[in-house]
Design a protein around this nucleic acid. Sequence first.
RNA 1: AGAGGAGUGGCAGAGUGGUCGAAUGCGGCGGUCUUGAAAACCGUUGUACCGCAAGGUACCGGGGGUUCGAAUCCCUCCUCCUCUGCCA
Length: 427
Amino acid sequence: MLQTSAIRDHFEVYTKGLQKRGIQNAADILQNILKIDEERRNTQLQLDDLLAQSNQMAKQIGQLIQSGKKDEADQAKKDTAALKQQSKELGPKLQEIEKQLTEALYNIPNIPHDSVVAGKSAEDNEIVKQADENIPDLPESAKPHWDLIEEYDIIDFELGNKVTGAGFPFYKGQGARLNRALVNYFLDEALKAGFTEVQPPILINEDSGYGTGQLPDKEGQMYQVIESNLYMIPTAEVPITNIYRDVILNAEQLPIKNVGYTPCFRREAGSWGAHVRGLNRLHQFDKVEIVEINHPDQSYETLDKMVAHVENLVKGLGLPYRILRLCGGDMGFTSALTYDFEVFSAAQKKWLEVSSVSNFETYQANRLKLRIKGDDGKKILAHTLNGSALALPRIVAALLENNQGAEGIAMPEVLHPYLGFKSITKK
RNA sequence: AGAGGAGUGGCAGAGUGGUCGAAUGCGGCGGUCUUGAAAACCGUUGUACCGCAAGGUACCGGGGGUUCGAAUCCCUCCUCCUCUGCCA
């Protein structure tokens, strides 16, 4: 969430920033925050004053009792009744105001970076790079991946329906091995790039959900384990970033670079249709995620490096890709700047999003209370970043479609050592 | 899952109703001494909010309660340890 002090200091900039996201009444919203905050400060001042008096009285009573002046002590006890009454009223009032303030702040998205253009939807995203030289020239008979996976018997949706439900496919044989190969390839590349591998829990508690911003606004998108009050992760970002909740880092520890592979679970309620056939959208999928924490001065350099890392992966797989800079209206709630990677799936003739790389600046760090202690001992909020590197199913879809041939489906060379075979073939 | 015990500052560890934001030790930082280092000695050393400051307030696992006053008493939740059970 945003910091109230920052809203006060950069009111104009913040207003314009929110307008880029299409929030017309941004000034009113921010003004309301400042109003509640002022009320909060006034109330706290009053309460502090009352408590100071009470503390003073309590000390005196203690002294009176110890020096045997019982009558005076009893009188003083009576005198404190009024103070107590007042603070009993003010305490809950302050809590109520604080609750209002955080709720109001939770409802305000991050301020977009300068380079982000205003815009309403995906239509307005900027293409910053288009590398489409690898688009294959497929014959008319080319099949979409949902036909190929049946033909080669490598992914089974029917089985998933039976055992779990729609959107939970089984990967079988060479399909399962392809997934494992991709995960290993992605992890190994991340290790080469200096990331530390972590294997986080895939269930998280409520605090973690709030920490990275999935809660309260995106509650419906996560699966819940109600009897334990836990959530299934929609992305490894949540557990890996929450490692650093309530943490004060030393400047020398930066940058923090973690990578983790996890399954991801998304309910994606109400977004099913023809355009999400096959592997295009699932309730459970595999993803390798990179998470970095760095000093505010370096975070955009870090973002560029992460983008380069992801680009290296899609290039390695030989897939046609493009990089988008998301516009204000299409960007995630908590992000200040997001680059999306899309690969071209040649039989569907569609660009599929396979990665999203974002700088959250201090938006998550403020919720997480993640700070950096400088040499001067001063503490500042860190910048958090993350990116998919990469999400598997759509990569699989593009690989299958783009590389299909009469003799099977050729696999990119970088995967050969991991796969143990060079193409997917019929049994 | 059941029974018992425990959670205090970076760490260790005192503190069972008042002057406790909290002894003491270790570690960290600054200094004295030294050619330098070690040792010794002296000082300093939590976080957040309000305030120009002085200062005030809150925090002893989380939340709630009793009391004029809670680290200390009560309730509840969480975590850890020991024993029993179950289990990849």
